[in-house]
Design a protein around this nucleic acid. Structure first.
Length: 572
RNA sequence: GGUCCUGUGGUGCAGUUUGGAGUGCACGCCGCCCUGUCAAGGCGGAGGUCGCGGGUUCAAAUCCCGUCAGGACCGCCA
């Protein structure tokens, strides 16, 4: 139906007879004698000149036959790639008419997102999404190539799997043949990729769809894509090098930026300095350790296991309402309060100034390198609360837009093996129960310790977003048994929950390790989008609905009955 | 489960603080004019459940309560 794409034509094509197809992007009519039509397809826009009246409207689909000609020099449009030429339309066929679109197909209008999602097929015509989807395709094709070149083999794993009690809430699929039983949709191919290693696949990868029924965020959808990787006879560093080169290839493909080495810091350091296990290192405002300084303070609020602060250069200008807002948020995030101190006219100006001794004030200023005009923000509490809250305060105050400051990849290593406790008071795995403990901490595990044990788990972080995580897996049954014991999982229970996997490990398990990279997030950051919905063709809203198809929807009773299901009335 | 923000012709906004006639701006739409525009231009016109429900008031887009939808975040996400 067409000989060329609109945006591909150049001055070299002058004189050619072409046939183009596309949408009416914009029209400029000059009465019954002359009209200019900007014809748009995926490649771009070209001006079609029509002699005589043209009864065309926005978004009509046209097939245009005509000759490419150079524009008169005074009418060249430098802001268009095709601006030096135009097509003299000799025949214009309307392939489809269009009602006026529900919103403008341009880049200037910031349209309500529900409207965009309801008419996503129209939204997709806009260059923002066209470009984003193109970049997304570039990410997947380039990482595929990178993985293949490193000797990885793509293996597909099932979408209908057994539900496991670990991790996120599962999406479930009722079994028709076995009413009352359910498949789960995979949260990740974790088990299967490890089984691939048992199966001698050696180097596995997959661009895998993962599903988790947890509340959505700007960087979270129910379903998302991962570059999933597992390799045998490698250590964690090998895996990190493999992943580093894959994301570097993707970054260069999309942005042209070369990523050479990706620095590593330990989880401990990330928490101490940035109050986060996914630090955004594009800006300062690092946390300052102040616990010792207030060791014997008279001020009750600072008599806590941990005190840290952030120095905000120039922050003395913060208004009272801004500080109150920060305090409210800090409390919402779990702190008892947020202490603020302004350094004005060489004085420590603060509601709490009177509770601090002169010595405390001067050493605080020195410790935090406080200068005239600065604001000092302090939190005192348990170590984890202090880090968590100040980490969020830091982002609230200083975080730049996602597309500023380049691409700061960072490896976070030496995660703790356990974190928190479950409802029975047993420690929980911070990554998953098959994560290999750090070899230097194996002795602690022997002693029945759980606190302070590091694991061979690692995360990849980009500009403050967790891009993915992975670990060295346990391939020895004795160590696995120790972990289950530490987690309070009895042998019977372990057999029930992970029996098939434990069985598999009896038959010659190679040492292996793996990783998974969130491709929606990677793509979003590479194209400078704050929200992964902008790099997904058909995303869901924050409440998990799809305004286009109205999913989720009830199903009829006959269908329910066939599946052996009954819907309870909404609880009140 | 929680905190905060948003909802006004088809679209994007202003108006809400301090209640007084559906008032305004830009784009789009419809009609007419226009032979070199390119976010074309000129003239004219149509288009409104101010998300929804209730309350206060002589009077509510505006104040109060509730609710729905959307968004950001905390919890949650091995």
């Amino acid at each position: 139906m067409r000989s060329h794409r609109c945006g591909d034509l150049r001055v070299d094509d002058v004189g050619k007879e072409v046939m183009l197809c596309g949408w009416v992007d914009r029209r400029r009519e000059h009465g019954e004698h002359l009209a200019f039509i900007d014809l748009r397809d995926r490649s771009g826009v070209i001006q079609v000149v029509v002699q005589g009246a043209a009864d065309l409207r926005s978004e009509y689909v046209l097939q245009v036959t005509g000759k490419v000609r150079e524009r008169p020099s005074e009418t060249v449009n430098d802001s268009l790639d095709t601006g030096g030429i135009e097509v003299e339309g000799s025949e214009v066929i309307v392939l489809a008419e269009s009602e006026p679109p529900p919103f403008p197909i341009d880049d200037r209008t910031d349209v309500d997102e529900v409207l965009r999602l309801r008419h996503r097929y129209v939204d997709l015509r806009r260059s923002r999404l066209q470009n984003n989807l193109q970049s997304r395709a570039l990410v997947t094709s380039s990482v595929r190539k990178a993985m293949e070149e490193q000797g990885f083999m793509e293996v597909e794993t099932p979408m209908l799997v057994a539900s496991t009690p670990e991790g996120a809430r599962d999406f479930v699929v009722p079994s028709r043949k076995d009413p009352g039983s359910f498949y789960a949709l995979p949260q990740s191919p974790q088990i299967f990729k490890q089984l691939c290693m048992l199966g001698g696949v050696d180097r596995y990868y997959q661009i895998a769809r993962c599903l988790r029924d947890e509340d959505l965020r700007a960087d979270r959808q129910y379903e998302f894509m991962q570059l999933d990787i597992e390799a045998s006879f490698v250590n964690g560093e090998d895996i990190r090098n493999i992943v580093s080169s894959a994301v570097a290839v993707a970054t260069e493909a999309v942005t042209g930026e070369k990523i050479t080495t990706i620095p590593s810091i330990t989880w401990q350091e990330a928490m101490e300095r940035f109050g986060s296990d996914k630090p955004d290192v594009r800006f300062g405002l690092e946390l300052v350790e102040l616990t010792d300084l207030f060791k014997s303070t008279e001020f009750r609020a600072f008599q806590a296991p941990c005190v840290k602060g952030i120095r905000v250069p120039g922050g003395a200008e913060f208004s009272r309402s801004r500080l109150d807002e920060l305090t409210d948020k800090s409390q919402n995030w779990g702190a008892k309060g947020l202490a603020w101190i302004k350094i004005e006219n060489s004085e420590m100006v603060s509601p709490i100034a009177k509770f601090l001794s002169e010595e405390e004030k001067s050493s605080l200023k020195a410790e935090m390198s406080g200068e005239e005009g600065d604001l000092l923000l302090l939190v005192a509490d348990e170590w984890s609360t202090v880090c968590h809250v100040l980490g969020l305060v830091r982002l609230e105050i200083g975080r730049p837009p996602i597309n500023e400051g380049g691409f700061h990849f960072l490896w976070i290593i030496d995660f703790p093996l356990f974190e928190g406790t479950d409802e029975n008071g047993n420690p929980s795995s911070s990554h998953h129960p098959f994560t290999m403990p750090h070899k230097d901490d194996l002795a602690l595990l022997e002693d029945g310790e759980t606190e302070g044990i590091r694991s061979l788990a690692y995360d990849l972080v980009l500009n403050g977003w967790e891009l993915g995580s992975g670990s060295v897996r346990i391939h020895r049954q004795d160590i696995q048994q120790r972990i289950f014991t530490a987690l309070g999982i009895e042998p019977d229970e372990a057999r029930k929950r992970f029996g098939f996997l434990l069985d598999a490990f009896k038959f010659g398990a190679p040492p292996h390790a793996g990783f998974a990279v969130g491709l929606d997030r990677l793509t979003a950051i590479l194209v400078g989008e704050e929200n992964i919905r902008e790099v997904i063709a058909f995303p869901k809203t924050q409440s998990g609905s799809d305004p286009l198809t109205s999913a989720p929807l009830p199903i009829d009773d006959r269908h329910l009955k066939e599946l052996g299901l009954k819907v309870l009335p909404p609880s009140t």
